[in-house]
Design a protein around this nucleic acid. Structure first.
Length: 372
DNA sequence: CGGGCAAACAGC
DNA sequence: GCTGTTTGCCCG
């Protein structure tokens, strides 16, 4: 079947442009193009279904016309930072995924979050950037996707994680509690696995209990820029080791509600098949991974988060180290008894060291006052 | 570790 | 005068 149609001078020039500039046209293709050109010179364009090359040429010409003013741009496919890579969702003003590689070396170092500050990401199109004021007094915390604690080895890497391109509105209690323990668990995996890779991001899911015959996804928007509050957060964890020439790749996918999660819940309660996570996010997470070569993370590892006692002792230990005087030190230490926790040897040692240090300091202070 | 808030301060 | 940034102190 052959169609013959008239054409305008515009079509001729656009075709000529296409012909001149598209260097990808092969020699064989060139012949078709030349044929096409000779037909064009006769004021006719022939599109033939049994002439695939010519049809191709016409398709491309048509595409050029349709997209005369450019292709709608949803922003970069991904942005690269010192120690993480992410894709930013310009409509929701949050990342759609954040990828990172965790090793033991990266978890050691002097980088400290007190030297970092949340701020808009200067690498983004400012038109779509979120601001601190969007989060302020919104009722939601600024939750890191790749956590600050995964970048201890380098201050600039940690600073990068404080760009709001790496942040989503997260429930306070979830962020400080369950999610925090989840992140600690990921770091802990580096003790068993040489390489740990994690992809983290938001998910928007319908509340099936609330819906009846029709299903809706409902989510809050905060601030003047209307930053989207995800209903859930996900993590894909890939842990690898090659001990005894035996290459083990462990894979786990998790979807956690963006709300307080108690100690009664286990990490495995939130495990989902990767396919489900991919379906819900619209992302093929690991296109280059042969999944038949992987094992379930929670079958080769306990997937056990830190217990309540251990966790509370853990951050009491952190706070002990920041105590500035004996009064404060004792106050923090007394919390252990108040919460009916049993201090471990490490914590007792830490307290004694700090106590000695502060006593010394206060003694020096008094001596100094007397001299004056 | 994960966060916030308010006072003090600098700058226009 | 107001506004944005730093500092110190607070919590789970």
């Amino acid at each position: 079947m052959t169609f013959v149609k008239g054409f305008t001078t515009g079509a001729l020039t656009s075709f000529a442009c296409f012909y001149v500039y598209n260097s990808r046209i092969s020699t064989a293709r060139k012949k078709y193009a030349e044929d096409a050109e000779s037909i064009i010179k006769q004021n006719r364009v022939v599109i033939s279904s049994d002439d695939p090359m010519l049809e191709d040429v016409n398709k491309l010409e048509n595409q050029r016309k349709i997209l005369k003013y450019g292709i709608p741009d949803k922003g970069p496919e991904y942005n690269v930072y010192e120690n993480h890579v992410l894709n930013y969702d310009q409509a929701r003003k949050i990342p759609s995924w954040v990828a990172e590689h965790i090793t033991q070396d990266k978890l050691k170092g002097e980088a400290n979050r007190k030297h970092s500050h949340f701020k808009p990401d200067p690498n983004l199109n400012s038109k779509f950037n979120a601001g601190n004021d969007d989060y302020l007094k919104s009722g939601w915390s600024r939750g890191h996707m790749t956590p600050a604690g995964n970048h201890k080895y380098k201050q600039t890497a940690m600073n990068d994680s404080f760009y709001l391109s790496n942040v989503v509105p997260q429930n306070y209690e979830n962020n400080a509690g369950f999610w925090n323990r989840f992140e600690l668990y990921c770091r802990d995996l580096t003790k068993k696995f040489k390489d740990v890779r994690v992809i983290t991001g938001p998910v928007f899911l319908p509340d099936l209990e609330e819906s009846e015959d029709k299903i809706f996804i409902k989510y809050q928007l905060i601030g003047k820029r209307q930053v989207a509050v995800p209903t859930h957060l996900y993590k894909v964890v890939i842990a690898e080791s090659n001990n005894n020439n035996n290459n083990l790749i462990a894979l786990g996918a998790f979807i956690v509600p963006n709300k307080p999660i108690g100690y009664d819940k286990q990490l495995t309660d939130f495990m989902v098949p990767l396919e489900i996570l991919e379906e819900k996010t619209g992302l093929t997470m690991l296109p280059k991974l042969d999944q038949s070569m992987t094992k379930n993370l929670c079958s080769v590892d306990s997937c056990q988060l830190m217990s309540r006692d251990k966790f509370e002792l853990y951050f009491i230990a952190r706070r002990l180290q920041t105590a500035k005087n004996l009064d404060q030190l004792n106050k923090i230490y007394n919390e252990i008894a108040e919460k009916k926790l049993k201090p471990d040897d490490y914590l007792i040692k830490l307290f004694k060291e700090k106590e000695w240090q502060l006593k010394e300091k206060e003694l020096m202070g008094k001596k100094h006052q007397k001299e004056l």
